[in-house]
Design a protein around this nucleic acid. Structure first.
Lengths: 129, 129
DNA sequence: CGGATTCGTAAGGGATCACTAACAAGTTGA
DNA sequence: TCAACTTGTTAGTGATCCCTTACGAATCCG
């Protein structure tokens, strides 16, 4: 049912907004090395407390850029780059200024969208533009 | 340049922040069809006044995503996709999850940064969905 | 069982953003 | 020169964001 107010801080799950914050990009960069817990991420010199990291992770989670898996008392966050495809698609929109090599990748990401990983809850890529 | 307080509203010229707003992306989409004036852009059903568009253009201008050229009493805004390369580069950072075709384009955009040739806007290409 | 972890979330305040209305400066054409 | 047009900018308000502190729930280990 798309619970609207889940985290009290934000209402939309826009991917562009999610990657707008440098800390959020840094978190995604870290997650590219493998799944991590909140404590591990917050241990890095991000300059903010663990709750702040947790809130950023909530934004990333709702935008679909990361996924969470609870194992014991630890929550492991994993990168979910498929949902980055919305940004990629938009940038590809300007491909007429660039080489056409982008087109091939765009098609590939297209197939990813049709056949996502079984873990992905696919939280609606609406936002018709 | 890099005058800090130029528009009173923002302080940073972050490209990620610039493309975070849907209206700003819409403006960039329009500019992909060719250079336009503020009046032409504001004439589209964006749902906001001309000053609002002007302020969004100021953000885009400072982020380097667009450039302005004053001709007579009209200001023509042109798309500057090379500066979108920062976003593209970051997304490429996750290329290990994607095909390696991205790498070639990244290098090409690198050369674009050094040699920004005049872009060739296709007037009215009918780029709709 | 009880203390130590790990974590998400509520509450609060400070900062920034986004928009509208009003104004001032520069340009065009008669 | 004067009126019309195009534009950027300022002031001001309402909303949103981001972070910290504090708290409660759940889990692991001795």
């Amino acid at each position: 049912m798309t619970t609207k107010s889940k985290t009290t801080q934000h209402a939309a799950a826009d991917v562009f907004t999610a990657i707008a914050h440098p800390a959020r990009r840094g978190i995604l960069d870290m997650l590219a090395s493998g799944e991590m817990t909140v404590t591990t991420i917050a241990a890095q010199p991000f300059g903010m407390s663990r709750p702040a990291v947790s809130q950023h992770l909530a934004v990333l989670l709702e935008s679909g850029l990361v996924s969470m898996e609870t194992r014991g008392r630890e929550n492991y966050y994993q990168l979910r780059p498929e949902n980055l495809n919305e940004v990629y698609r938009w940038i590809t929109h300007f491909e007429r200024f660039w080489p056409e090599k982008l087109d091939a990748l765009g098609a590939y990401l297209d197939t990813l969208e049709d056949n996502p990983h079984p873990l992905t809850p696919s939280p609606l890529h609406g936002e018709g533009e």
